[in-house]
Structure formats: C-alpha cells, structure tokens
Design a protein around this nucleic acid. Structure first.
Lengths: 203, 203, 203, 203
DNA sequence: AATGAATGAGGCTTCATTCAT
DNA sequence: GATGAATGAAGCCTCATTCAT
C-alpha cells in the first residue's frame, strides 16, 4: 500500500512537471508565433534544462501537439460547462468558439500547422482523432438541438470548418487592430450561426 | 520609337523570365509543401542562378506572395468564365472553389502561412487586399443572385471563410486518401452551399 | 564466521550482478557497433537502472574495457584447452584466432578503439598489459613449437599484429557477405600461418 | 577559347580552395584524434566559414574520406618513386609503409574507423576500392620481385594486413614514447618482411 | 543582367554522468 | 545499494541572402 502511494506520488510529480513545461510553452506561444519558439527558450522559461524537456517529450513536435490537444480538450470541457442543463444555442456555441480562438491564436496556428503538413506519429494521429471526435460530438448535439437532425454529423463538420475558416481568413486583416479583428470575426460567427439556424428552419 | 520597342522587348523578356521562375516554383509546390522548398531548388528547376531569383524578387516571401496572388487572380478569372451570361449558382461556386483548393494545395497552405504570421510589406499587403477584394466581389455577386441581399458583403466574407475552413479542417483527415478527401470536402462544400441557400430562402 | 559468509554472499551477489551487466552489454555489442550503444540501453537490457551501472563501473570506458579484457582472457583459455597435451599448430592457432574475431567483431572494434585513442586509466593499462602478456605467452609457445626459436617474443608480436591486421583490413570488404568475409579472412590467416611456418623452416 | 580558360580558372580556384580545407583538416588531425575535430575548428583553421566546408563536402564523413583517400594515393605515389628503375625490396616496402603510418597516425585511425563501421556511400565505397587496388598492385609487384609468384594477390592482402596490424596492435604500447613505438613497429615490420622473404625462398 | 560561392547564426537533439531519495 | 530524473555542453548541418566578378 505504501508502495502504491509512492508510485502515485511520483506520477503526480511527473505530471505536474510536465504541466509546468506545457504551461511555459503556452506562455511563450501567447506572445509569439509558436514556430519561432525554441527549445532553449521553453526550457529557460520553465526553469528546467533542455534535456528535461526531452525527458517529457520525444521531440518539439510532440510538445506542440500536447498544447494543441489540451486546447481541444479545454474547448470541449468549456462547452460542457456552458449550459448546465441544456446544450448551448448555435449562436452561443459559435461565439464562444470564435472568442476562444481570438484568445488563443496559437490554437489555430497549430491547427493549420498540423493539418497542412506537420508530421505526426500514428499514435499522435489516433489521439488527435479521438479528442477531435469528442469535440465534434458537442457540436453535433448543439446542431441537433437547433433542429438540424438530418446529416447532423456531416453538418457539424461543416460548422466546425466554417468557424475555423473565419479565423484563418480574417485573423490578420490588414490594418485592423486586435479589437477590430475580434469584432469582425464575432460578426462572421454570428452570420454563420444564423445561416445554419435559418437552414434548420427552412428544411 | 526604336528605343521604345527595345525597352518593350526587354520588358517582355523580363516578364517571361519572371514567369519561368514563377512556374518553376509552382511546379515544385505542387509536389511538396512550399515551406520546404529552397531557393536553390527553385533556381535549379527554373534553369537560372540563385542570384537571378533575387533580381526578380526581393526575397523568398515576395515570390511566395506572387504565387499566392496569381492563384487568387486565377480563381477570379475562372469564376468570371464559369457562367458566361449569368453568375454561377452558390453550389457551383462552392464546388468550384473547393475543387480548385484540392487541386492547388499550395494555395491554402500559403493562405494559412500569410494569415498566421508571415511577414508582409505594406506594399504587398495593399496588393493582396486589392486582389482579394476582386474575388470577394464575385462571391458577393453569386450570393446576391442566390437571394442574399442583406449584409451581402459580410455574408460573402462568411462564405469565403467557411470554404477555406473546409480545407484547413479536412485536407489531411487521418487515414484518408486524396480521393476520400476530395469527396468529403466537396460534400461539405455542398452542405455549406445548401445552408447559405436555405438561409436565403428562410429570411 | 557467520559474518564472513554473509560477506561472501554479498560478494557473490555483487559479482553475479556485474556479470549480468557485462553479458547484457556483450549481447548488445554482438548486434551493433559498441560505440553506438548507450548506457540507457545497457541498463534496460540488463534489467537494472542506469545508476546501478555506475555502481559497478566507474564509467562507460571501464565497462568497455571489462568486455575487452574478458575477451582476451577467453581467447587465452580457449587456446589452453585446444590441444590438451601439445600446443596447437601455427595454422590451428591462426585459424582459431580469426574465427574468434569473426564471431566477436566487438573485440577488434575495441582493440582499435583503445589502441587509437581511447583514454585508459593507469590501472586499466596495467591490467590490459598483464592479460595481453598471458595471451602472448601462448602465441610464443606455439611459435616455439613450430620451430621459431630465435626472437620468439618479437615474432609472436609480429604474428599477433598480422592476425589483427587481417580483420582490420578485410572485416568489411565492400560488397561481401559475412560468409565471404569469413572465408577470405580465414584464407589470409592460413597464408600468414604458412608464411611464418616456411620462415621457420628456411632459417 | 576564352570561355574554356575561364571555366578552367574557376575549377582551379575551386580545387585549390578544396585543398586548403583538406590541408587544414590534416593539420588538425596531426595533432588530435580526428574524431574529436569539429567542423567549426576545421573552418576556423582554414579561414573559411562553416558553410563553405559544406560547399565542398557533403558532410564531415566525406571530408574524412577525402583525407583518407589522399593518404592512400600519396603512399602509392611514394612507392612508385622509391626505386626509379626497380621495385623496392620487401623490406624497403615494409619499412617505408610503417614509417608512413608512424608519421600519419590519422591514416590508420581512419582506416579503422571506416573499416569498422563508418558509414560510406556506395560512391565512396567504389572510389576507395579503386584507390586501394592501385596500392595493392604495388604490393603485389614487390612480392613478385621477392619471388612470391604463387597466390601473389592473396599474399599481398596478407602482407598489407600484417603491416596494418602492426600499427593497430602497437601504436600505443603502454608506457612507451613515440620513438619507442617507432623503433618497435619498424622492428616488427622487418620481421614481417623477413618472414615473407624466407617463405618465398622456402617454397 | 546573371552568376553562384561564401556566409554564419542558430536550430534540434543526444547522452554520459550525477545525486537526492 | 538501487534508482532514474535532471543536467547542459556540444555536435552537425541548413539555407536565405549578399556581392564581387
């Protein structure tokens, strides 16, 4: 029994140190494009050595992926906690998602990165797939509540795509401030929500 | 007059050489992620020296941008030529755009790149803005024809976003072949088109 | 008395654990170039921790050296057991040695390593010297029996050199299989034996 | 014609710079084990940038190989120039070779390195094979003159092996000075020469 | 205008060894 | 005595860009 507790403690310590590294990386990513952040910087910022990073992650890509997956999980959890009793409305969901993306530009930077060529191990691919499915389930539920009951899975893919596309297309509209961007993307999110809602009514 | 002709010739030669470089780059990008293509490779493939590349482009980014802008212009022209007399239907437009993106993966790779951190000169930003506006005009026209007459500019932004998002989100769905991807993204394009169409009817 | 037995037991356990480590290392070396084997791998393969390795060896070099010395001792013992009553003939000796080297490529890899720059402690140097002398005695005996009685010590050095050189020079003849190598090196061993034999007769 | 001269000049310049790099590397290798010499050091010592090294060599291994091949060629040429009219005697050849090895410890360090695991491209392997054959021809000729006319190719392999083995086995005899080593290895070379000579007479 | 050799900062990663538990 | 996480120096190599010819 004592032994089990010791192992547990070790695991907890390991997890917490991994979290320190992860959070340090996030910290840096919130300020700079993640592709320009170096291992050295992450290590220094986390207060550990370079080697320690590699004790917790096979390579930089795995660390990036961890950040990415954590983001998706966070979004999923936040969605679960939005409407305690009933699922969020389409508009709530869209606005929330776009707000999250505005607050976490690293997230869609990484999405682009991994989707457009970032090499991933089969293991990582599987994990990503699972976590993504959980998020898609929430989207599907919201669509279902909004009255879209045919093709709901495919439509949730379309909705997810549309929202991601907003940020990809307008996250850096030339000459606009961060606030302008936020306002514009939220507006587009509202339009997307409206379009999907109307479509539900029409059909 | 003779002088003018000589200058013209020079300009023509210059333009054609620039085109050779551009096409060579495109050639390479059709096979590999553009971020992994080096100046040396482009030069060798174009049959010119590295230095020549820099005689025609300030730096690699400008060349990338040229490729990108040419793509947008090409899309715009193709849209213009689709329906000789009447603008394309929403579904036609969406399917066409997604088909183009499937055929030119470099295009949305570059879109992501420039939107998510690629540094651009003010000059380049302006040019991009102009060319993008022309494309957006075509989208707006199609939406207008489909019955979306309120907020049509904003809605065309939303449509553009949604289509881009399809590729970003599903261009590399794990374990799917190129053909699967094409089928899935076209399906999503159809759903998007349908949703926008329904919305037009509903309102 | 009980105490002595306990100490003995401890020593036996210590020796056996050291042997486990040594054998694990040998196991790995039989498959891969010893210079590419890491402490971590040896530890894992031996089923002990990295730290334990360092409880038994001052550093990796000492472990390598231990493997090397054990090899030389093994060769010496095998030579002793070859001809129970009379020493082996020159050809027998040469063939045996080359066969051993073919079977234990790590041995001459290490010989090269230590001879060509591997740092050794004075203590280790002394140990190596002793063990090497024992082997050289066997060679000298064989040469003596073959009729080489002048300069026999020096000649045994020459013979030893010649045999080692065979492996260094032809252990990786380009495009040859392991079997080809074995056949070629054994042939050269036979020639060397013959040359030394003839020389004995001639003088 | 002018053009050809220009190209020639360029090639000459290229060759000479390559030689500068090569000589700088050799310079360093004469003082330190080549495996501990870094690209940075070679570059600094040659007065060029690191990148320049890689303009002339694909990687460090290729540079090492170039040093090695140059050594073999040098030996071959020196052998050719030894006896203007008649080939060198066996003893001359052996002594010369061992002297060369004593003067160029990098040579047999590299021989060991490449023979015992250093990865080589097929192209490099071929080049090495060719150059080695030229050297072996000289050895064979000397053996032939010494009266060894049966199996002369195989015997030249054996002689080559034996000489290499001398250095591998005794280049670092514990507690001996460089001069001691030189004397001892030359002695062994003489014995080897004698043995092969006697053998020729006996048969 | 065309050439292409030279540049060199800086990236990621490895791995023997230590030492607190 | 056993453990194994932490350390961090150091290695090789890439590649956009410049500039003398």
């Amino acid at each position: 029994m004592a032994k089990i507790r010791l192992e547990d403690l070790k695991q907890i310590e390991r997890d917490s140190r991994r979290k320190i590294i992860l959070d340090s990386a996030l910290d840096l990513f919130s300020v700079r494009d993640f592709r320009s952040v170096t291992v050295r910087e992450i290590a220094r910022h986390a207060g550990v050595s370079i080697g320690t990073i590699y004790n917790y992650y096979l390579n930089l890509t795995e660390l990036f992926l961890d950040v990415f997956l954590n983001n998706i999980e966070e979004i999923t959890h936040m969605l679960d906690n939005m409407g305690k009793d009933k699922p969020p409305s389409l508009e709530q969901l869209c606005k929330f998602y776009i707000t999250y993306l505005n607050d976490n530009m690293t997230f869609y930077q990484m999405m682009s990165h991994f989707m457009l060529g970032g090499e991933m191990s089969p293991d990582a691919t599987q994990k990503l797939d699972d976590i993504m499915k959980a998020l898609m389930n929430r989207m599907e539920t919201a669509l279902y509540s909004a009255g879209i009951q045919n093709n709901s899975r495919l439509t949730s893919h379309a909705l997810f795509s549309a929202l991601n596309g907003i940020m990809i297309s307008y996250a850096r509209y030339p000459g606009k401030s961060d606030d302008d961007i936020r306002r514009h993307t939220l507006l587009l999110a509202k339009i997307i929500a409206g379009v999907f809602n109307d479509s539900a009514c029409a059909s």
